[in-house]
Amino acid sequence: MADFMQFALSGVTVGAVYALIALGFTIIYNASDVVNFAQGEFVMLGGMGTVFAHQAGLPLPLAALLAIALTAMIGIIFNRLAIETARNAPVVSLIIITIGASIFIQGVVQIVFGKQIYRLPSFSGDTPIPLFGANILPQSLWVIAGAIIVFIALWLFFTRTMTGRAVLATSNNRLAAQLVGINTNFMMTLSFGVSAAIGALAGVLVSPITLTSYQVGVPLALKGFAAAMLGGMGNPKGALVGGILLGLLESFTAGYLSSHYKDAVAFIVILVLLSVKPQGLFGTKTVNRV
């Protein structure tokens, strides 16, 4: 039972990270229908940026803030230079552009910071806190709290604010949104900025636990993506539930089955899901108009 709790707690922690990444996917997907394969690089940039700002002498909170702001900037620049320029490109082209961006960002970070693995100090020490007969790291609580806060903020943003609704309108029908006076370019910029910032935040929160290096992004992006699909692409609630669920699945697989194949869970989930229920747990089918 203690084992079970321990696996559950670590599953929820990892799941919260996946949920954050999935939320980042969701925002960009909602605004632009683009599946951003570079989402994981935002996470990597958040972690690496904080490490280096901290090493340069900035206090941890300030370093984290700087890294998140810089990552948001990079997200916005990426949108402006690549995605907006390639508007109306077929899905295949957009996929390749975002993968290109992912590889490019990795390459730059590797040249600038090297291939080493870096660690970030935990925010509130490393003394485990007993919980439900198991132990949880203080940093895990930070991660879980981060995911919950971001989710609530996003939910309020999309349902309660004009800007949030404008983002959704932009994704529904760009032309119609423009006609009713929505600045769709700004909505795209905003989405990429916010999405990158959320990714970076996930990177900051998780780096003390998992360590970070220039190549942590791709696997995280894929799992975040699996989480988003599990919940139903484009649905924030789905992203949260999908993330936690995937985290739990992974953790129990590692605990009870095989730690080698822990990372396989996400991909098996994707393959099974696409065969059985492609719209995900909370997604809806769409009608294709001609």
Binding site: A82, T85, A86, A89, S93, L94, I96, I97, I99, G100, A101, S102, I103, F104, I105, Q106, G107, V108, Q110, I111
Partner: peptide, 20 residues
Amino acid sequence: DQYEQVTLGLIMMLVMIFLR
């Protein structure tokens, strides 16, 4: 070697944007 990734990524983006 060191620049392989940067170059590959850049090529992918540029070709898809300007020379689809």
